[in-house]
Structures are given as C-alpha cells and as structure tokens.
Amino acid sequence: MPKEIDIKRRRTRKDYVFHQTYRSRWFDNDMYAHLNNTVYAQLFDSIINHYLITDCGMDPFSYSNNTSSTSSTPKNTINPSGQVAILVNSYCDYFASVSYPDVIDLGLRVNKLGSTSVTYEVGVFKQGDDDVKVVGGYTHVWCERESMRPAKAGMEKGIRAALERLIVKEDSKI
C-alpha cells in the first residue's frame, strides 16, 4: 500500500479542524447498501462550500465589482468576493462502508495552500467512531470572477486567512 494511502487510513477526528454532521438518507444508499459514490462528492462539496460561505465570506450570489450591492445580498455576507474557486482536481479513497441510517461526521482540513490554489481534505466518520471510513477532497484554483483566469495577485487576503486556520501539517515521524 502506498505511504500516502496508509497515512490517510490512520486519520482520526482530531486530524481535522472544522467539523459538520450529516444525517444519511435512505436515498443515499446504492444497490449494495452503502452510500453511493456520488453522495461522497456532494458531502465534500457541502462542507467545503459551507466553510467558504460562513468563514471565508464567500457569497455565491453577489460580489464586489465597484457596483452597488443588491437588496438580495444576504446579511451575513462578510466580504463578497470578486473571485471564484474553480475545481481542478478531486479524489476519494474508501476504507470502510457507510450507509443509511448512519449519522455521518465530516472533518475538513487544508493540506496545501498556494498563492491561488488550495487542496482540501475531508474525512468521513460514522458518528461515535474515530476510525475514518473515507478520505477525499479536491483542489480549487482561485480565479477572477470576470475573466475566470487565475487571480494574478493571489487569493484575497480574508479568504487566505480563513483557509490558513484549516492547515494541518503532517507529522514528520509518519
């Protein structure tokens, strides 16, 4: 087994900074009585975007572009962004099954933060169990909303500061 996979397999809840709970639904199961692969992609997208909206100030429905904001701008918007995060890579490693009616705990961390990119990792746990069942995630590249090209000046400072709070360094002894 590759070292990277073995490291992921040994993850526990404490290896993740931000947490969210998801109550599985009957609809989430596939014909083999475990969560369908597409559900994991939705879970990853949900926890990552929740963090981006609530902690990074991302507002997918409005942005600052030197025009007045609309009355539909949510009141909890911290800093509407002129940037968007474009998914450029995704992955998922499965170690054990999760299925309905499990309550699922998700953990989020940042493994790498570049000037315009961020690589997230999400751990999937059954509630009450510290052994990770699935580890996956993806990489975003921060682009200017108008051009959809990577941000020349890098990601916005507020977004970067919030993402830095999720960085977890690997133990060099592993």
Rank of each mutant, 00 (worst) to 15 (best):
S64H: 08
S64M: 04
N66G: 10
T67P: 11
T67F: 08
T67A: 11
T70Q: 13
T70A: 13
T70R: 04
S71W: 11
T73A: 15
P74R: 12
P74Q: 10
P74E: 14
K75H: 14
K75G: 05
N76W: 10
N76A: 07
N76P: 00
I78L: 06
I78Y: 00
N79E: 10
P80L: 10
P80W: 07
P80E: 05
S81Y: 00
S81I: 01
G82R: 01
G82Q: 02
G82H: 02
Q83F: 08
A85Y: 00
L87M: 15
N89M: 06
S90M: 09
Y91N: 13
Y91G: 12
C92A: 15
C92E: 05
D93K: 14
Y94D: 02
A96I: 06
A96E: 08
S97T: 00
S97F: 03
S97E: 06
V98P: 03
Y100C: 05
Y100S: 00
Y100W: 02
P101K: 00
P101M: 05
P101G: 09
V103A: 08
V103C: 03
V103S: 04
I104L: 02
I104V: 08
I104W: 03
G107M: 02
G107A: 03
L108T: 00
L108I: 01
R109T: 03
R109N: 09
R109P: 04
V110K: 14
V110W: 12
N111P: 01
N111W: 10
N111H: 05
K112E: 03
K112C: 02
K112S: 08
L113F: 00
S115H: 05
S115N: 07
S117K: 04
V118I: 02
V118S: 07
V118T: 04
Y120N: 11
E121G: 12
V122E: 04
V122G: 05
G123N: 01
G123D: 11
V124R: 10
F125D: 04
Q127R: 11
Q127E: 09
Q127T: 00
G128E: 01
G128H: 10
G128M: 14
D129V: 04
D129S: 12
D130F: 08
D131I: 08
D131V: 02
V132P: 07
V132E: 09
G136P: 11
G136D: 09
G136Y: 06
G137T: 04
T139M: 15
T139N: 15
T139R: 13
V141I: 15
V141Y: 13
C143W: 10
E144P: 12
E144K: 12
E146S: 15
E146A: 15
S147W: 13
S147Y: 12
M148H: 07
R149D: 12
P150D: 14
P150A: 10
P150R: 07
K152H: 07
